[in-house]
Write a protein that binds this DNA or RNA. Structure first.
Lengths: 236, 236
DNA sequence: CCCTCACTAAGTACAGCGTACGTAGTAGCC
DNA sequence: GGCTACTACGTACGCTGTACTTAGTGAGGG
């Protein structure tokens, strides 16, 4: 007589349908789509078991027949988002393909701003993650390196893109819960930063901020970072 | 008559002591230290306003006199951890100094496994973050590049280290709440991965995993990644 | 054919969370 | 000395994840 849930299980190993009993009212995709819809519209914090169940139109506890823990719901969401990755026939130019991968991932994360926060290596085995990984490896066929190196390249590129987009979106996502706007939050922080720098305690930072007062070109910074990661693995 | 908390404020801009009234029983450092102690010992999820107040030995709501929102408590924690960064006199060899910075950050995060999860650019203005940033810039004095480039290097190195350590620690941290061990969790996932690969749908991944079945040398992977980031900014 | 039993569905309940609000007491300033 | 800003903190509300329970359903085995 095992204690309920005492055995570790991967949600993907669970069959969606077992022979007996009435057939489930929802598919895993239905549930993931509902959760993604809520997160896109109202932010990740709005995704609760109750809210997702309501979105589906079923009782809260019925959800637990499909998703044993909330953590697994997150895993479904990440996989669903990963399903939007559209693979293509590798071009033979692995550099160009990697650039395209990076840009596609960034766009995906802009479409689903909660995604960077949920990204975890733990979710790396989901069906769409595997599909994505295999596609990246296919793109890297022309790169004459060991698979270990290729995996390191993919991990580093992914990590960099995730970190980068997180920096782009984090304030916007976190400010949802606050009674003031993102601009006000930023203004308050910049003002404080200015007052600190004015003390003269940080001469190099002061120089950095006076060097170029113009607005930062996020697009260009991103492209540069991608190029650097690529070059780091195969200098020209 | 302003609505309470309707004006954005940075916790660091709040004076710790205003003239009037009885003198506060705790300093900001006391509070941060208590929260860090709890997070180190019981994991980040154990850090609640009630728990921290209990650790300090005061009523729950008294904490709100020091920390207007829980978010700010997190900010205090990150800054406190950042205070453990021990700066040194730049050696003149910026590459060596950057390696040392990366290693020190990694050690810091191993000491405080909750830190990667809390890392956010939003906290980049805290006193210790500023101190750290200035130190990095000082180490980069010999690198003949614009400040913009130097900041990009620091951001990329930091981001890479954070992502990397997160990958190292995430499963361990997340498994705290579960009724099984990290090893069991990993075993379940690896087993599932094996079953997927056995289908033959992922030939390149299959090749990658048969190429080298030995245990991964995390230390070596980390050092390689650091070297790559450094080289990406100043190829030799 | 029908009985059995695995399964779905959903309600109730509990412990814990962040925090708004109100009240009581304290100490520096005019 | 009193005004007043401040600290301290108990109560309460709405929310969370989820354990447990009960009722109903429908395919498989005899």
């Amino acid at each position: 007589m095992a204690v309920r849930g005492a055995v570790p299980e991967v949600i993907w190993a669970r069959p969606e349908r077992t022979g007996r009993g009435p057939k489930p009212a929802y598919t895993r995709d239905d549930i993931a789509a509902a959760a993604v819809r809520i997160a896109d519209a109202e932010g990740l914090d709005a995704v609760s078991m109750r809210r997702v169940a309501a979105e589906l139109g079923c009782g809260t506890m019925s959800l637990y027949n499909y998703v044993p823990r909330k953590e697994d719901l997150y895993e479904l969401m990440v996989d669903a988002a990963g399903g939007e990755h559209a693979p293509w026939e590798p071009s033979g130019d692995w550099r160009a393909d990697m650039r395209r991968v990076a840009r596609q991932t960034r766009e995906l994360m802009h479409r689903h701003p909660w995604l960077p926060r949920l990204m975890s290596p733990v979710y790396g085995f989901s069906p769409n993650a595997l599909r994505y990984l295999e596609h990246c490896l296919a793109c890297l066929d022309p790169l004459e390196e060991r698979y270990g190196t290729k995996l390191e390249l993919i991990a580093m590129l992914n990590g960099m893109v995730t970190t980068y987009v997180r920096n782009e979106l984090d304030t916007a996502e976190r400010v949802r819960a606050l009674p003031w706007s993102e601009d006000e939050e930023n203004a308050a922080r910049i003002a404080y930063l200015g007052s600190r720098i004015a003390t003269g305690a940080y001469p190099r930072m002061a120089a950095a901020f006076t060097e170029d007062a113009g607005p930062i070109d996020l697009e260009a910074v991103f492209e540069r970072a991608v190029e650097r990661v690529i070059d780091a693995f195969a200098p020209r």
